[in-house]
Amino acid sequence: MRDDGAVRTITLDRPEAANALHLEDVDAITGAVADLPDRVRVVVITGAGDRAFGAGMHLDVFRDAAPGDGRAIITRLATCLRAVRTAPVPTIARLNGACLGAAFELALACDLRVAHAGVRVGLPEVRLGIPSVVDAALLPRYVGAALAQEMVLTGSVHRVDEPGTAPLVNRLVDSPAGLDDAVDDLVATLLAPTREVLSAQKELLETWREQGITGSVEASVDTFAEVFALPATRDAIARYRP
């Protein structure tokens, strides 16, 4: 985490594993967005290196867990994503590479997304034997029901410059070299209004969303916990090779 004036940058920093997340990383993100000093007006989340924004949860999180640990695991992730979604300042996902699984949900939890044309997004959890849950519930709002169903049922991965996934991104640049300028331009725009009005506007946006998403998230946590405890899930996790 790094603060530069009014901007806090959170970097998923495990490039040797495509920035895959451990639960300690999830908790660190929660703390970084939940405890913002007044001087911070925008949060930018990105990944280290040029290979990936994030590959999702590290496989060791699932392989090392007991069958009954599913609820605790997904609750920590849900807490993190809600903290990002309800942060009192605008959040920007700077998508510098592949954005999969929990990292894609993290990007969906952000208010805005900036990406280059080569970025690929997806929710491949079903191929591991577990459902896509929590902020994956936001996906149909961006890409429509048909593509969202395909993505969560097949684990398909798509480029963000495809027609179906284009609505996911607020700023699309041709190459990674253009990311910083696009993010800086967006940050400058967000620094113009007061912190208070943007905080209030974000609370309103969340209120509008919660009319449908709260029940979806609660149901998805239950489903994740139930499926995670199944013997077939344990077998699938043990067999999986990326």
Score class of each variant (00 low, 15 high):
F104T: 01
R195S: 14
T214N: 13
A55E: 04
T9D: 07
A98T: 01
D50S: 09
I213L: 15
A34R: 15
E210L: 06
A177T: 13
P15L: 10
Q201A: 01
L147I: 05
A52F: 08
A148H: 13
L139S: 01
H158L: 10
R14G: 03
T165M: 07
R71Y: 14
A98Y: 06
A66F: 14
L139T: 09
S132R: 01
V152C: 03
A6L: 03
A48V: 04
V114Y: 10
L123A: 06
V26A: 00
A238Y: 12
V227Y: 06
D185G: 13
G68V: 15
R239K: 08
V169Y: 06
T189L: 10
T165D: 01
S132E: 10
E150W: 03
D25R: 00
P167S: 08
N170T: 11
V227R: 12
A65K: 12
P176N: 10
R239S: 04
L21G: 02
A115V: 00
G215S: 09
T154N: 10
R113A: 09
E226K: 13
E24P: 11
R241G: 07
F224N: 01
A137H: 00
T165N: 03
A17P: 00
T11S: 09
S156Q: 14
T79R: 14
S132M: 09
I213D: 15
G215K: 08
L191S: 10
D180Y: 09
L168W: 07
N170W: 13
A238V: 07
H158Y: 05
A115N: 00
F53R: 14
A238T: 11
